[in-house]
Design a protein around this nucleic acid. Structure first.
Lengths: 149, 149
DNA sequence: ATCATATGCTTGCATATACAAATTCAGCGA
DNA sequence: TCGCTGAATTTGTATATGCAAGCATATGAT
């Protein structure tokens, strides 16, 4: 491959790499949420887990990881921290390997407390990104999730 | 606020949170690129830095962090690792505080070697996400970058 | 009943991420 | 020139992320 072709191709990465852009978007959006949530002592990552737990009722780690497309080890350590804060509690289970957990009353309280701030941040994100963002993100995530292992 | 309203609002986070969806998209897309790049012993994060360095020629950390919307401390440690691998080298600078760096020949070689694989992964991502993805991502990132501090 | 395999989760390790504090140096004013 | 302020970067700390390996338990085959 001639030198000039290589140059063009490297420039192609710079101009078009989806991995780069998704990661930048992630940093920007995560910072937006984390900044707003800072007074409450938690980050968007933990809010996501609280909400997912609320949805599932009694949550099995492997199941939640499938929903959130997250490695089980990542979830495992976050659940530890959130149990230590009294937001989650482990439930008994006939299967000795399972470690299902659910929201505590405190965990539920946290969710209620952050609701107005979440709304503010969400509105800001929609204003910045455009109204069609949500549809767009949902389609992309659904499509990629269905392909992922 | 009545109980039922709270329930609806928590469900609203579950159904609509942009922070959640962007983070899921980031995990899915990052894993897609990292999996493809694994044979080459680097990840998409380092590819992004290599390409940005190639673009900038001589890169100042603060400048690159503005471009990539990344904290300077995050870049600092990655540049350390990449210098240790011989892909980047620090340049002298009249300003004693500055630590500008540039690509080494080895760093340039790495970029050339991964080009075909990057192309494959990028094609797969475009197929999965749709052709209009890139425009949308570019618009979103540009819009958010211009607002960020 | 036993053994092999599969499942569910945790732990070890390396990197990614960002805030806060420390460090080093530049530039400016008295 | 002395010291003050600000800028560029690194270091300390905590969380996020995923792979590989470990551990305990369940399940299936013989």
């Amino acid at each position: 491959m001639p030198e000039s072709d290589t140059l063009l191709n490297i420039d192609n990465i710079a101009a078009n790499c989806i991995g780069l852009r998704v990661r930048m978007l992630n940093r920007l959006v995560t910072n937006l949420y984390d900044e707003g949530l800072r007074p409450f002592g938690l980050k968007v990552s933990q809010v996501n887990i609280l909400v997912a737990t609320w949805k599932l009722g009694t949550a099995r780690p492997a199941e939640m990881c499938k929903v959130l497309q997250m490695d089980v080890s990542t979830l495992s350590r976050n659940v530890d921290r959130m149990k230590a804060r009294g937001w989650l509690e482990t439930m008994p289970d006939p299967d000795g390997r399972a470690q299902p957990f659910k929201l505590t009353a405190q965990g539920r309280d946290v969710l209620e407390k952050i609701l107005p701030v979440w709304r503010e941040i969400q509105d800001k994100a929609i204003t910045l990104l455009g109204a069609e963002t949500l549809d767009w993100l949902n389609r992309s995530v659904r499509q990629l999730s269905s392909q992922a292992k």
